[in-house]
C-alpha cells in the first residue's frame, strides 16, 4: 500500500545534525490536506485516494466541484491529486504529516519552474564550441542530421520551451516531521517555486541507494 500527501513548498534552509554536519532541507507545509474521494475498483476501475489541498472561496468554485467537496464534507479546495492503492482513509478526514517518519524515502512531484524559451545548452546540456581562435560556433547546436536523410528526425533535441512541466524528484530522505506545525522537512531540492503545491508520496524506489 502506498501513501501520499499534498503540501505547499515553503522554501529551503539548512539543519545541523547531531554529528554536527549540515543538511540542506526543503520545508513543506501540509496544513489543509484532506481526503476528498475514495475510488474503488468496483466503481472506477481502480483503487485510489483523491486528496485535496488549499483553501478556495466557495463563490469562485464551479457548482459541480462544490457538490464534489460537499459529498466529502470538506471546504472547497484548490488542488486535487490522486494516490493509487492508498487504502481507505475516512472520507473528508485531514491527512497529517504524521503519515511519514524521519528516515523514510519519498518522491516529490510538482510543476517545475518555467524557464521560457531556452537554448540547447541550457535545455539539453549541450557543450559549447570554442570561444576564441575566430570561432563563430559558440552557442550553435552542431549537426542536426545527415544529408542522406534529407530531413530532421522527430525528437531531435533543439531549443524550445523549458520548465513549467510536471517533474518528480525521487528517493528524498525525510529529515524531520513536525506534526505540531504540519511541516515535512525533506533532504534536498524539490521542483517548483515557493508556494507551489506538491504531491509527496512514499518512494517507488525500494532499493537502498548510497548517500
Amino acid at each position: 500500500m502506498s501513501k501520499g500527501i499534498l503540501a505547499r513548498k515553503v522554501g529551503m534552509t539548512q539543519l545541523f545534525t547531531e554529528q554536527g554536519t549540515v543538511v540542506p532541507v526543503t520545508v513543506l507545509e501540509a496544513e489543509s490536506c484532506h481526503v476528498v474521494q475514495l475510488k474503488t475498483t468496483a466503481t472506477d476501475g481502480y483503487d485510489a485516494v483523491q486528496l485535496g489541498f488549499g483553501e478556495r472561496r466557495p463563490r469562485r468554485t464551479v457548482k459541480p466541484l462544490l457538490g464534489h467537496f460537499k459529498r466529502a464534507g470538506t471546504e472547497p479546495l484548490t488542488h486535487l491529486a490522486e494516490v493509487r492503492e492508498a487504502g481507505s482513509p475516512p472520507l473528508g478526514s485531514r491527512v497529517s504529516v504524521d503519515l511519514f517518519a524521519p528516515g523514510e524515502r519519498v518522491d516529490v512531484t510538482g510543476i517545475s519552474k518555467g524557464k521560457g524559451f531556452a537554448g540547447q545548452h541550457k535545455r539539453h546540456n549541450f557543450s559549447r564550441g570554442p570561444v576564441t581562435h575566430g570561432s563563430h560556433n559558440i552557442k550553435q547546436p552542431g549537426s542536426i542530421g545527415s544529408t542522406d536523410a534529407a530531413r530532421v528526425f522527430r525528437g531531435m533535441r533543439m531549443a524550445g520551451h523549458l520548465g513549467a512541466a510536471r517533474s518528480t524528484v525521487r528517493h528524498l530522505e525525510v529529515v524531520r516531521v513536525d506534526s505540531e506545525r504540519n511541516l515535512l522537512l525533506v533532504k534536498g531540492a524539490v521542483p517548483g517555486p515557493r508556494q507551489s503545491v506538491l504531491l509527496v508520496r512514499d518512494s517507488a524506489r525500494t532499493g537502498v541507494i548510497a548517500g
Binding site: 515553503v10 529551503m12 545541523f16 522537512l185
Partner: peptide, 12 residues
C-alpha cells in the same frame, strides 16, 4: 515570522 526563520532560530 515565517517558518524558515523560526526553524533557523531554533538552530541557533
Amino acid at each position: 515570522m515565517n517558518v524558515i526563520d523560526l526553524l533557523q532560530r531554533e538552530q541557533e
